[in-house]
Design a protein around this nucleic acid. Structure first.
Lengths: 250, 250
DNA sequence: TCGACTGCTATTGTATACATAACGTATTCA
DNA sequence: TGAATACGTTATGTATACAATAGCAGTCGA
């Protein structure tokens, strides 16, 4: 056996978790496929104990499923699972927006959100948007959603939203990328940005119901567009959902 | 050291997880307290590997918190954390009810729910309700909520609701028990039962918005009553939230 | 007397050896 | 020829040994 190269900069458990997640999301491990501990030990370079810890964490994260007779397999998702996950996240973000509005947010706390908004506005001014700008958009959008979640000041809710975002297709970046496969991508991004603008306005004016409603609409839009994107699969490589979709006839 | 008694009927990991959870919820381990692996090994009877697996799972469950420098501590919750968790669960159950209503549910699927409803009606006819009946109520209520969740037919949502219910005070049984500490407990149970009746009716008539609204109201009622119950702490032993509430001045 | 540095101890992180259970294959009997 | 059982192999579950780090205490120096 090859010598074990030990990287002490991060824990072996974390290293194994990252490596395995990458294998799952990149499609190296197919949905439904059983994960062999021994094989994972070889590909990650960690020993069995941290690998097992990583497997348990990935199961909790929702990427793996425990097999009753022992071991784990890569979880397979149906298209509906995916759209439900997005709507679920939208619902939670809606609650976060409502909490933020009802509990009040200082101008100072809102500042980073507005900066984010302005930066996205700047990007969207380009027609058509460049590839670089699009990738900046993905980052800024993720940041916007994270900041908004924080505004709720509710640790249990923030935690739950984080977990709901663990699935790549349910993360803000994930569904933006999926939408980019559509011809009307730019128009979609502009509508999304409008939602962002409305939710900030609603929070500022302490309109909880309106803040919640717009975030839910935001997610419903994402669901519709993901459905479309899955129909005409033009930019397959941009769809992080694909690696996890059930291939079985089921 | 005492001989290791090995119970082969359940896995050591599960045994350790149950034992540790019990210690946390019963208050043997105080909020904020660090959990020593060695100590956990002694009290659970499992060895370090399954104990560590159990600790990871309990962290994911939300009962423990990882300490940056290593190890785990019992998570401490504020009163707001608790009420937020309940509202969070209500929001998710609202979405489940909406899904059930919008996607349609056959009369046959609704049957168990209605049986549950009728059984609770029977119990509530007693004035005042007996202790035995109350404990039946807790079971039936938990069953009702579980069945309702299932009706959504959305595995991701069901999964998320399960996780949101992992915290004892956020589970249906938990907050019913908390409410029982109030003098107007019976009246509260009757209002809750009315909510149950409305949600079934809304699902039958495919009124998604109404189904969702009533479940959210259901949770908001629970939040209000939990707050009251925490004020006049009459039946402390019935409040599963207490073991986890921050004692620190914070 | 206070602060800093060094060494020790205790606890966690990691690796591996051992036990056990499950699955697959081959052989035998009906 | 097919089915069932037994045996062997492989993989997971468990235990424990080893390594490394963090925290604490004690001592020495300023």
């Amino acid at each position: 056996m090859a010598e074990r190269e030990v990287d002490r900069s991060v824990s072996q458990t974390v290293k194994a978790q990252l490596a395995l997640r990458d294998q799952i999301l990149s499609g190296v491990l197919r949905p439904g496929e059983r994960i062999s501990e021994l094989q994972a030990v070889e590909t990650t370079g960690a020993s069995r104990t941290p690998v097992r810890m990583a497997l348990v964490r990935l199961e909790e994260e929702g990427l793996l499923e425990a097999i009753p007779s022992g071991g784990f397999m890569v979880k397979a998702f149906s298209e509906r699972d995916i759209s439900d996950s997005i709507e679920l996240r939208g619902t939670l973000e809606g609650l976060a927006a409502r909490f933020a509005a009802e509990r009040g947010v200082s101008a100072r706390e809102l500042e980073p959100l507005k900066e984010c908004l302005a930066a996205i506005d700047e990007l969207l001014r380009q027609v058509p948007i460049s590839v670089d700008s699009f990738s900046s958009y993905v980052t800024l959008n993720a940041r916007f959603h994270a900041l908004l979640t924080e505004l709720s000041r509710s640790p249990p809710l923030i935690r739950q939203i984080d977990r709901a975002s663990a699935l790549p297709f349910a993360s803000p970046s994930g569904f933006v990328m999926a939408q980019s496969a559509l011809p009307e991508a730019q128009q979609i991004l502009i509508i999304g940005q409008e939602h962002h603008r409305v939710v900030i306005d609603a929070i500022e004016n302490r309109e909880g119901a309106r803040a919640e409603a717009v975030m839910r609409e935001h997610a419903r839009l994402a669901v519709r567009n993901l459905r479309l994107a899955l129909r005409n699969r033009t930019h397959l490589d941009l769809l992080p959902a694909l690696a996890l979709i059930k291939t079985a006839t089921d």
